[in-house]
Simulated assay, not measured.
Amino acid sequence: MSAPPTPLPVRHPHPTVKAQALAYVMFERPDLGLTERFLSDFGLRVAARTGDTLFLRGTGPAPFCYVAFPGDRPRFAGLGLNLGSREDLRKLATLPGASSIEPVSWPGGGERVRLTDPSGFTVHAVFGAAEAEVLPHRAPVRFNFSEERPRINDTQRPPVSPPEIIRLGHVVLEVADYQATADWYTRHFGFIPSDIQVLPDGSPAVSFMRLDLGDRPTDHHTLALAQATLPTYSHSAYEVVDTDAVGIGQRVLRDQGWKHAWGVGRHILGSQIFDYWYDPYGDKHEHYTDGDLFTSDVTTGVHPVHREAMSQWGPPMPRRFTQPHLTLSAVLRTLHHLRHSPDLSVRKLLTLARLFG
Protein backbone atom coordinates (compact mmCIF):
# COMPACT_ATOMS: atom_id res chain seq x y z
CA MET A 1 0.00 0.00 0.00
CA SER A 2 1.38 3.41 -0.97
CA ALA A 3 1.73 6.17 1.61
CA PRO A 4 -0.96 8.87 1.62
CA PRO A 5 -0.01 12.18 -0.01
CA THR A 6 1.77 14.77 2.12
CA PRO A 7 -0.68 17.53 3.13
CA LEU A 8 -0.23 20.93 1.51
CA PRO A 9 1.18 23.76 3.63
CA VAL A 10 -1.39 26.31 4.82
CA ARG A 11 -1.12 29.66 6.53
CA HIS A 12 -1.32 29.42 10.31
CA PRO A 13 -4.14 31.43 11.94
CA HIS A 14 -2.04 32.45 14.96
CA PRO A 15 1.70 32.18 14.29
CA THR A 16 4.18 32.65 17.11
CA VAL A 17 5.64 35.71 15.33
CA LYS A 18 5.54 37.20 11.86
CA ALA A 19 8.98 37.55 10.32
CA GLN A 20 9.55 40.92 8.63
CA ALA A 21 12.41 40.18 6.23
CA LEU A 22 15.05 37.70 5.19
CA ALA A 23 18.15 39.10 6.87
CA TYR A 24 21.03 36.96 5.62
CA VAL A 25 22.34 33.58 4.54
CA MET A 26 25.38 31.88 6.10
CA PHE A 27 27.99 29.58 4.57
CA GLU A 28 31.14 27.79 5.65
CA ARG A 29 33.89 28.00 3.04
CA PRO A 30 37.40 26.48 2.85
CA ASP A 31 38.81 29.54 0.98
CA LEU A 32 37.36 32.92 1.93
CA GLY A 33 39.52 34.70 -0.65
CA LEU A 34 38.08 32.63 -3.49
CA THR A 35 34.59 33.12 -2.04
CA GLU A 36 35.06 36.89 -1.93
CA ARG A 37 36.30 36.95 -5.52
CA PHE A 38 33.22 35.16 -6.82
CA LEU A 39 30.78 37.23 -4.75
CA SER A 40 32.46 40.49 -5.81
CA ASP A 41 32.12 39.49 -9.48
CA PHE A 42 28.53 38.47 -8.70
CA GLY A 43 27.82 41.98 -7.37
CA LEU A 44 28.00 41.88 -3.58
CA ARG A 45 30.27 44.25 -1.65
CA VAL A 46 32.40 43.56 1.39
CA ALA A 47 30.70 45.12 4.44
CA ALA A 48 33.16 44.00 7.11
CA ARG A 49 35.72 41.43 8.15
CA THR A 50 35.42 40.48 11.80
CA GLY A 51 38.16 38.12 12.84
CA ASP A 52 37.93 35.30 10.33
CA THR A 53 34.33 36.05 9.25
CA LEU A 54 33.44 37.79 5.98
CA PHE A 55 30.27 39.91 5.70
CA LEU A 56 28.93 41.10 2.34
CA ARG A 57 26.07 43.46 1.50
CA GLY A 58 24.02 44.98 -1.29
CA THR A 59 23.34 48.66 -1.86
CA GLY A 60 20.19 48.65 0.31
CA PRO A 61 19.99 49.45 4.04
CA ALA A 62 20.71 45.94 5.33
CA PRO A 63 24.12 46.02 7.09
CA PHE A 64 24.95 42.68 5.44
CA CYS A 65 23.11 39.85 3.70
CA TYR A 66 25.80 37.20 3.27
CA VAL A 67 28.09 35.67 5.89
CA ALA A 68 31.05 33.40 5.12
CA PHE A 69 32.92 31.52 7.86
CA PRO A 70 36.07 29.44 7.36
CA GLY A 71 35.41 25.71 7.33
CA ASP A 72 37.12 22.50 6.28
CA ARG A 73 34.29 21.68 3.88
CA PRO A 74 31.80 23.90 2.03
CA ARG A 75 28.46 23.96 3.80
CA PHE A 76 25.29 26.03 3.96
CA ALA A 77 25.20 27.15 7.60
CA GLY A 78 21.72 28.67 7.85
CA LEU A 79 19.70 31.86 7.47
CA GLY A 80 18.59 34.89 9.45
CA LEU A 81 15.09 36.39 9.71
CA ASN A 82 14.33 39.90 10.95
CA LEU A 83 11.57 40.32 13.54
CA GLY A 84 9.35 43.26 14.41
CA SER A 85 9.91 43.53 18.17
CA ARG A 86 11.93 42.31 21.12
CA GLU A 87 8.74 40.68 22.37
CA ASP A 88 8.91 38.48 19.26
CA LEU A 89 12.39 37.40 20.35
CA ARG A 90 11.06 36.56 23.80
CA LYS A 91 8.30 34.40 22.31
CA LEU A 92 10.71 32.45 20.12
CA ALA A 93 13.13 31.95 23.01
CA THR A 94 10.45 29.85 24.74
CA LEU A 95 10.32 27.29 21.90
CA PRO A 96 11.91 23.86 22.45
CA GLY A 97 15.60 23.91 21.55
CA ALA A 98 15.78 27.70 21.17
CA SER A 99 18.66 29.69 22.63
CA SER A 100 18.14 32.52 25.07
CA ILE A 101 18.14 36.09 23.76
CA GLU A 102 21.76 37.02 23.09
CA PRO A 103 23.56 40.15 21.85
CA VAL A 104 24.89 40.20 18.29
CA SER A 105 28.44 41.41 17.60
CA TRP A 106 28.03 41.35 13.82
CA PRO A 107 27.58 44.53 11.72
CA GLY A 108 24.43 46.35 12.81
CA GLY A 109 24.37 44.71 16.22
CA GLY A 110 20.98 43.96 17.77
CA GLU A 111 19.88 40.75 19.49
CA ARG A 112 19.00 37.27 18.30
CA VAL A 113 17.60 33.87 19.19
CA ARG A 114 19.14 30.81 17.56
CA LEU A 115 16.81 27.99 16.48
CA THR A 116 16.98 24.80 14.42
CA ASP A 117 14.17 23.89 12.04
CA PRO A 118 12.92 20.27 11.69
CA SER A 119 15.26 19.67 8.74
CA GLY A 120 18.31 20.70 10.79
CA PHE A 121 18.86 24.15 9.27
CA THR A 122 20.04 26.87 11.64
CA VAL A 123 17.75 29.91 11.83
CA HIS A 124 18.72 33.18 13.53
CA ALA A 125 15.77 35.34 14.60
CA VAL A 126 17.09 38.91 14.79
CA PHE A 127 15.78 42.19 16.18
CA GLY A 128 17.28 45.61 16.69
CA ALA A 129 20.05 45.62 14.07
CA ALA A 130 20.87 49.15 12.93
CA GLU A 131 20.44 49.91 9.26
CA ALA A 132 23.49 50.80 7.19
CA GLU A 133 23.89 53.79 4.92
CA VAL A 134 22.28 53.14 1.55
CA LEU A 135 24.88 52.95 -1.21
CA PRO A 136 24.36 54.62 -4.61
CA HIS A 137 23.53 52.53 -7.63
CA ARG A 138 22.63 53.40 -11.19
CA ALA A 139 19.03 54.15 -12.09
CA PRO A 140 17.03 51.54 -14.03
CA VAL A 141 17.21 52.01 -17.79
CA ARG A 142 14.17 53.52 -19.48
CA PHE A 143 12.54 51.42 -22.19
CA ASN A 144 10.93 52.67 -25.39
CA PHE A 145 7.77 50.63 -25.95
CA SER A 146 5.46 50.68 -28.96
CA GLU A 147 2.85 52.74 -27.05
CA GLU A 148 5.18 54.72 -24.82
CA ARG A 149 8.54 56.21 -25.89
CA PRO A 150 10.08 58.24 -23.04
CA ARG A 151 13.71 58.03 -24.24
CA ILE A 152 14.28 60.66 -26.95
CA ASN A 153 17.72 61.80 -28.11
CA ASP A 154 19.29 59.44 -25.59
CA THR A 155 20.99 56.03 -25.71
CA GLN A 156 21.27 52.91 -23.58
CA ARG A 157 24.81 52.47 -22.27
CA PRO A 158 24.72 50.77 -18.86
CA PRO A 159 28.27 50.00 -17.68
CA VAL A 160 29.74 46.55 -18.22
CA SER A 161 30.69 45.81 -14.62
CA PRO A 162 29.52 43.49 -11.82
CA PRO A 163 25.78 44.10 -11.37
CA GLU A 164 24.84 46.19 -8.36
CA ILE A 165 22.94 43.87 -6.04
CA ILE A 166 20.27 45.72 -4.10
CA ARG A 167 19.32 43.07 -1.57
CA LEU A 168 18.92 39.40 -0.74
CA GLY A 169 15.47 38.37 -1.95
CA HIS A 170 14.85 34.71 -1.14
CA VAL A 171 16.35 31.36 -0.24
CA VAL A 172 15.23 27.92 -1.44
CA LEU A 173 15.83 24.82 0.68
CA GLU A 174 15.39 21.16 -0.19
CA VAL A 175 13.95 19.00 2.59
CA ALA A 176 13.02 15.36 3.21
CA ASP A 177 10.69 15.96 6.18
CA TYR A 178 8.48 18.30 4.19
CA GLN A 179 5.35 18.56 6.29
CA ALA A 180 7.15 19.20 9.58
CA THR A 181 9.47 21.78 8.05
CA ALA A 182 6.74 23.70 6.22
CA ASP A 183 4.54 23.65 9.31
CA TRP A 184 7.40 25.00 11.44
CA TYR A 185 7.90 28.06 9.22
CA THR A 186 4.19 28.83 8.88
CA ARG A 187 3.48 28.17 12.57
CA HIS A 188 6.41 30.04 14.09
CA PHE A 189 7.27 32.75 11.53
CA GLY A 190 3.93 33.38 9.82
CA PHE A 191 4.94 32.42 6.29
CA ILE A 192 2.07 32.28 3.79
CA PRO A 193 2.13 29.79 0.88
CA SER A 194 1.77 31.89 -2.28
CA ASP A 195 1.89 29.02 -4.78
CA ILE A 196 2.38 25.28 -4.39
CA GLN A 197 3.49 22.91 -7.13
CA VAL A 198 2.19 19.38 -6.56
CA LEU A 199 3.18 15.88 -7.62
CA PRO A 200 0.68 13.58 -9.39
CA ASP A 201 -0.47 12.15 -6.02
CA GLY A 202 -1.26 15.66 -4.74
CA SER A 203 1.77 15.94 -2.46
CA PRO A 204 3.65 19.25 -2.49
CA ALA A 205 6.79 19.35 -4.60
CA VAL A 206 7.66 23.04 -4.12
CA SER A 207 6.00 25.63 -1.88
CA PHE A 208 6.74 29.29 -2.52
CA MET A 209 6.09 31.15 0.72
CA ARG A 210 5.92 34.87 1.42
CA LEU A 211 6.04 37.00 4.54
CA ASP A 212 2.82 38.14 6.17
CA LEU A 213 3.13 41.94 6.13
CA GLY A 214 -0.60 42.63 6.01
CA ASP A 215 -1.47 45.29 3.43
CA ARG A 216 2.19 46.02 2.72
CA PRO A 217 3.27 44.26 -0.50
CA THR A 218 6.01 41.69 -0.15
CA ASP A 219 7.88 39.35 -2.48
CA HIS A 220 5.94 36.42 -3.94
CA HIS A 221 8.35 34.23 -1.99
CA THR A 222 11.02 34.87 0.60
CA LEU A 223 11.39 31.17 1.41
CA ALA A 224 10.70 28.18 -0.81
CA LEU A 225 10.76 24.54 0.25
CA ALA A 226 11.27 21.73 -2.25
CA GLN A 227 10.61 18.04 -1.57
CA ALA A 228 13.87 16.14 -1.86
CA THR A 229 15.58 13.04 -0.55
CA LEU A 230 17.71 14.89 2.02
CA PRO A 231 17.91 18.41 3.45
CA THR A 232 20.21 20.72 1.52
CA TYR A 233 20.57 24.23 0.15
CA SER A 234 19.14 24.81 -3.33
CA HIS A 235 19.89 28.48 -4.03
CA SER A 236 19.69 32.05 -2.80
CA ALA A 237 18.48 34.97 -4.94
CA TYR A 238 19.62 38.59 -5.13
CA GLU A 239 17.71 41.49 -6.64
CA VAL A 240 19.38 43.72 -9.22
CA VAL A 241 18.11 46.98 -10.66
CA ASP A 242 16.83 45.86 -14.08
CA THR A 243 17.07 43.29 -16.87
CA ASP A 244 20.23 44.89 -18.26
CA ALA A 245 21.91 44.18 -14.92
CA VAL A 246 20.90 40.51 -15.25
CA GLY A 247 22.32 40.33 -18.78
CA ILE A 248 25.49 42.25 -18.00
CA GLY A 249 25.97 40.11 -14.91
CA GLN A 250 25.99 37.06 -17.17
CA ARG A 251 28.62 38.62 -19.42
CA VAL A 252 30.86 39.65 -16.52
CA LEU A 253 30.66 36.28 -14.77
CA ARG A 254 31.34 34.42 -18.01
CA ASP A 255 34.34 36.66 -18.72
CA GLN A 256 35.69 35.91 -15.24
CA GLY A 257 35.45 32.17 -15.86
CA TRP A 258 32.66 31.26 -13.42
CA LYS A 259 30.27 28.38 -14.17
CA HIS A 260 26.79 29.18 -15.45
CA ALA A 261 23.81 27.19 -14.10
CA TRP A 262 20.67 28.38 -15.94
CA GLY A 263 19.23 31.47 -17.62
CA VAL A 264 18.39 34.06 -18.73
CA GLY A 265 14.63 33.45 -18.49
CA ARG A 266 11.44 34.46 -16.72
CA HIS A 267 9.87 32.33 -14.01
CA ILE A 268 6.18 31.48 -14.09
CA LEU A 269 5.57 31.53 -10.33
CA GLY A 270 6.99 34.81 -9.04
CA SER A 271 7.59 36.18 -12.57
CA GLN A 272 11.25 37.06 -11.92
CA ILE A 273 13.64 37.48 -14.82
CA PHE A 274 16.46 35.23 -13.61
CA ASP A 275 19.99 34.02 -14.19
CA TYR A 276 21.71 31.38 -12.01
CA TRP A 277 25.42 30.86 -11.35
CA TYR A 278 27.47 28.29 -9.44
CA ASP A 279 29.89 29.61 -6.85
CA PRO A 280 33.33 27.93 -6.56
CA TYR A 281 31.79 25.14 -4.42
CA GLY A 282 28.86 24.32 -6.71
CA ASP A 283 26.19 26.26 -4.79
CA LYS A 284 23.69 28.20 -6.92
CA HIS A 285 23.25 31.98 -6.69
CA GLU A 286 20.58 33.83 -8.65
CA HIS A 287 20.37 37.34 -10.09
CA TYR A 288 16.77 38.47 -10.55
CA THR A 289 14.60 41.49 -11.28
CA ASP A 290 10.89 42.27 -11.81
CA GLY A 291 9.42 39.90 -9.21
CA ASP A 292 5.75 39.75 -8.20
CA LEU A 293 4.58 41.49 -5.01
CA PHE A 294 1.60 40.21 -2.99
CA THR A 295 -0.34 41.44 0.01
CA SER A 296 -1.50 39.04 2.70
CA ASP A 297 -5.02 38.59 1.31
CA VAL A 298 -4.00 36.74 -1.87
CA THR A 299 -5.02 33.08 -1.69
CA THR A 300 -2.73 30.14 -2.35
CA GLY A 301 -2.41 28.82 -5.90
CA VAL A 302 -1.95 25.10 -6.60
CA HIS A 303 -0.31 23.87 -9.82
CA PRO A 304 1.05 20.60 -11.21
CA VAL A 305 4.84 20.42 -11.17
CA HIS A 306 6.91 19.62 -14.23
CA ARG A 307 10.15 20.87 -15.72
CA GLU A 308 8.44 23.20 -18.17
CA ALA A 309 6.51 24.88 -15.30
CA MET A 310 9.68 26.55 -14.07
CA SER A 311 9.91 29.30 -16.71
CA GLN A 312 7.78 31.20 -19.23
CA TRP A 313 10.66 31.69 -21.64
CA GLY A 314 14.38 31.13 -21.82
CA PRO A 315 16.40 27.93 -22.14
CA PRO A 316 14.90 24.78 -20.60
CA MET A 317 16.00 24.07 -17.06
CA PRO A 318 19.09 21.83 -17.34
CA ARG A 319 18.78 18.41 -15.78
CA ARG A 320 21.93 19.02 -13.76
CA PHE A 321 20.20 22.00 -12.10
CA THR A 322 18.26 19.75 -9.71
CA GLN A 323 20.59 16.77 -9.53
CA PRO A 324 22.08 16.16 -6.06
CA HIS A 325 25.78 15.68 -5.45
CA LEU A 326 26.12 11.87 -5.43
CA THR A 327 28.49 11.15 -2.57
CA LEU A 328 28.52 8.14 -0.28
CA SER A 329 27.30 10.34 2.56
CA ALA A 330 24.39 11.63 0.43
CA VAL A 331 23.38 8.09 -0.54
CA LEU A 332 23.45 6.92 3.08
CA ARG A 333 21.42 9.94 4.22
CA THR A 334 18.91 9.33 1.44
CA LEU A 335 18.46 5.73 2.58
CA HIS A 336 17.97 6.97 6.15
CA HIS A 337 15.25 9.42 5.08
CA LEU A 338 13.54 6.79 2.94
CA ARG A 339 13.22 4.66 6.07
CA HIS A 340 12.26 7.39 8.55
CA SER A 341 10.68 10.37 6.79
CA PRO A 342 6.84 10.24 6.65
CA ASP A 343 6.93 12.37 3.48
CA LEU A 344 9.32 10.25 1.44
CA SER A 345 8.88 6.89 -0.26
CA VAL A 346 10.51 4.94 -3.05
CA ARG A 347 7.55 5.79 -5.28
CA LYS A 348 7.94 9.50 -4.57
CA LEU A 349 11.68 9.29 -5.13
CA LEU A 350 11.12 7.67 -8.52
CA THR A 351 8.52 10.33 -9.40
CA LEU A 352 10.94 13.12 -8.52
CA ALA A 353 13.67 11.43 -10.54
CA ARG A 354 11.33 11.11 -13.54
CA LEU A 355 10.27 14.74 -13.35
CA PHE A 356 13.65 16.31 -12.65
CA GLY A 357 16.35 13.67 -13.05
Rank of each mutant, 00 (worst) to 15 (best):
E28W: 09
F55P: 03
A130L: 03
R339P: 00
E308F: 09
A47T: 06
D292Q: 11
H287W: 15
L32D: 04
R216E: 11
S203Q: 11
I165K: 00
R251P: 00
T186W: 15
T243Y: 02
F143P: 00
K18D: 01
R45H: 15
P280K: 15
R333G: 09
H267K: 08
V171Q: 08
A3G: 01
L173K: 06
I273G: 04
F189T: 06
D31S: 02
G71Y: 13
F127G: 15
S207A: 09
V346L: 05
H124F: 06
T35D: 07
H267G: 00
A228I: 06
A3N: 08
M1E: 00
G71V: 03
L335A: 07
L328H: 13
F121V: 01
I248S: 03
D219N: 02
F145R: 03
S203I: 02
G357R: 08
G33N: 14
A245F: 13
A182T: 14
H170G: 03
R339Y: 06
Y185Q: 09
Q323L: 15
P136S: 08
A48S: 12
G109H: 07
K348S: 10
H14P: 00
E164P: 00
A130W: 06
G291E: 10
F64V: 06
G78Q: 12
N82Y: 07
G108L: 05
Y24C: 10
D279S: 04
V17W: 10
E174H: 12
D31T: 08
F64D: 06
T35P: 03
R75T: 07
E239P: 03
T222F: 05
A47E: 13
E174S: 15
L22K: 00
V302N: 06
R49A: 01
S146P: 01
R151V: 02
S345Q: 02
L92Q: 07
G282M: 14
V206E: 06
P318Y: 14
R90K: 14
L335D: 04
Y233A: 08
Q256W: 10
M1N: 01
N153A: 10
Q312P: 00
Y238F: 12
D117G: 02
R86V: 08
I268D: 01
A226Q: 15
S85R: 14
N82P: 00
R216W: 10
P200F: 12
A309H: 04
L54V: 05
V298F: 12
D41N: 12
I166N: 11
T50N: 11
L39S: 05
W313L: 11
V46P: 06
W106N: 05
R187F: 07
F42M: 03
R45V: 03
G265Q: 05
R167M: 04
T59E: 06
Q156P: 02
V134H: 08
R11T: 02
P193S: 07
W262Q: 09
G120H: 11
G202I: 10
R251M: 00
H303L: 09
F64Q: 03
S146M: 07
P150L: 13
L54A: 13
K284F: 04
R354S: 01
H303Y: 13
F55Y: 15
P15D: 09
A62T: 04
E36D: 00
P103R: 15
N144F: 02
